[in-house]
Design a protein around this nucleic acid. Sequence first.
DNA 1: AATGAATGAGCCTTCATTCAT
DNA 2: GATGAATGAAGGCTCATTCAT
Lengths: 215, 215, 215, 215
Amino acid sequence: MTKTLSNYGDETRLKLLQAATDVFVEQGFQAARVQTIAKHAGVRLSAINYHFGNKAGLYLATLRYHADLAISQQPLFPSESLSVEQQFRFMIHSLLVRLLDERQSNQLARLVLREMVNPTDAMDDIFQHVQSPQLQQVLTFLRICLPEADETRLLRTALSILGQCVIYALARPVIHRVDADFMRRENWLQELEDHIVRFSWAGIQALQERSHHDH
Amino acid sequence: MTKTLSNYGDETRLKLLQAATDVFVEQGFQAARVQTIAKHAGVRLSAINYHFGNKAGLYLATLRYHADLAISQQPLFPSESLSVEQQFRFMIHSLLVRLLDERQSNQLARLVLREMVNPTDAMDDIFQHVQSPQLQQVLTFLRICLPEADETRLLRTALSILGQCVIYALARPVIHRVDADFMRRENWLQELEDHIVRFSWAGIQALQERSHHDH
Amino acid sequence: MTKTLSNYGDETRLKLLQAATDVFVEQGFQAARVQTIAKHAGVRLSAINYHFGNKAGLYLATLRYHADLAISQQPLFPSESLSVEQQFRFMIHSLLVRLLDERQSNQLARLVLREMVNPTDAMDDIFQHVQSPQLQQVLTFLRICLPEADETRLLRTALSILGQCVIYALARPVIHRVDADFMRRENWLQELEDHIVRFSWAGIQALQERSHHDH
Amino acid sequence: MTKTLSNYGDETRLKLLQAATDVFVEQGFQAARVQTIAKHAGVRLSAINYHFGNKAGLYLATLRYHADLAISQQPLFPSESLSVEQQFRFMIHSLLVRLLDERQSNQLARLVLREMVNPTDAMDDIFQHVQSPQLQQVLTFLRICLPEADETRLLRTALSILGQCVIYALARPVIHRVDADFMRRENWLQELEDHIVRFSWAGIQALQERSHHDH
DNA sequence: AATGAATGAGCCTTCATTCAT
DNA sequence: GATGAATGAAGGCTCATTCAT
């Protein structure tokens, strides 16, 4: 196979994907204007149609591009074997980095967030390639921590953890208004990681005890 | 100018607000079409501009209408005096009802969610009249639980709690794909309340201990 | 203001219908440009959308407008009672006038011709309101001339008659190349009527005899 | 080597002609899309411009291809000598086969029909190579039947005959709606031939008598 | 006060054609 | 000789807003 690692090899194609990312992240699918994207990419408007069929095709391609990218960049669990609590910390760390780290591309997170509030036809794709695998990984881990919990309880626990992370991506405009520096302070992400790990690890232990009481 | 119910008394005006709610909730500000809203309300298209100036005016009026409504309907804390843990449960209960209870109007929650992902000029209004008061109430309560914590830690804790609740409104399309019945089972909201209370109360205790260790 | 006999009363609407007729007759539905129609009518482009929804709506409205007009203008059979042969002549005359008389509006014929060669969604409408009634009238008449013929034979006979008339509308560009003056000569329509009446009346008689032989 | 290459080139050319036939017959020149034709033919889009210059060139080539084919396939008159009436029947038979026989290619007829209702630059070509020769053959024959008729009368008579045949190709969508099985019944073409021969032969005789009366 | 008609800026898409390779 | 990529002119349509009545 002579194709390089990227299937998005064509220069025009790539330029369009990058421009599309910016505009879709900024404005959402609906409000984004293909004109704007083409201008940003420095290509003709009709190149979008040629390469991606239409606006929706470009949007889907953009999502898939970032899904491939993001997942490969930040694995959710360590390759080396660690203690359960260390694995937990690793997971929280990865989730926060995927969602919030400005140094890496968190474009996918912002696109997915939009998609959840305002689902388009791409939602199925997103769920299948991004959300479901991620959720399953979290659930698999939690099965070790809570061996006696049923699937419903595991799901609730996973969502308790994910919710604590996602809220910082979601409520960004609110947080900014409450404390403008919150997400700019040095080590804020590290401190947040500590907080969520402690808060949630205690929560998990409590559920575990509870499980014992139940039976 | 004191707002009274009679401000919404105009029949056309009220019909428009209700239709606008449905359409804005369903499609968001951008995608919503004033023609659709007018048809839904059974009024003339130009009545919108007549009564609300323009589309943005209608949107803002809709938000304010529901903000007034929702806050009065479900107080975040009990009037009677309860133990701290009972107050905590009451708060979680109220948050979940505001966000998720189908029997009550959770339209505001869905509008606010959209606004956070896709802020418009109305965001300031929302923050000031909906989010900030609510967040302050939670923070005030947490100050009792965590008397030694600084504001940043309190904010993180508040967000840990709010995030766990909000995720069910946000990730609705995901949850539905994972377990289609999750949000339809009898008592699911009650069980969720139990879960979040236990998980978070343990989390808060851990932070409290942690505070002791810190100092 | 009392509504006049026409439902196409709005001035803009009527201007659009007339301009649309010219352009659709000249170019067909596909090739016709709404821009051109709007310019011809002296109205804004978006007036088309306002009054007729879209290009197809305008097309359908144009067809219906002319269907109503044409049918009322030229009845296929005389109100007074005439001999069968006189009725036959009247029918041929009417058909030719509907199809070919430049002094009256034969726009419908040209639109219908296009529709038959290149059917659009409007074909059903045309069939139901124009072609079917006309054909049924011819068949009803032929049942008198050929009382023993079955429906299939009647249909063939009707088509023999209609075909002789329609060919002049259809093959106009061919006839023009063979004999440029053919359709311009004085009384050409009258002579054509004589021809078709004689040719076809003899044909019908022959079929009648044939019927006798059959049985 | 060169033979192989040129065969390959011819092959592409032929595949394009066949695909173009289908698409032009189905949609007409205007509505036909070169992309569709290229895909249908399984060749590159730019092969069309390479081989035929442009869309119009392909269209003309398609017409000429079928004109050559069709005329050679179905001579209008018998080589052997027959009685005048037998020759007449032969002619009607040939016309109907050219226009309607599904077992043979009647693609040309459908293309020509479109061209008459919606003439393009190809109309001259069609007239010169298809319609004019055919019409002249019919006229030549009719001169034998009606030795005293002038050219105008001969033309009218020829059109009476052609009109009866063409109407079945033209009014196909109408006939289908009136009697869905009409053109599917076994022997329908044979019966139609009988009908037209009888109807028209009587018509011609009547004109002949009429000629006597005139003079 | 309220409306029916009209508007115009702007959007996405189509499609025959071109051109460097 | 043949192609894959790109183009740009043009088309139909949307939709919030305006305005005379």
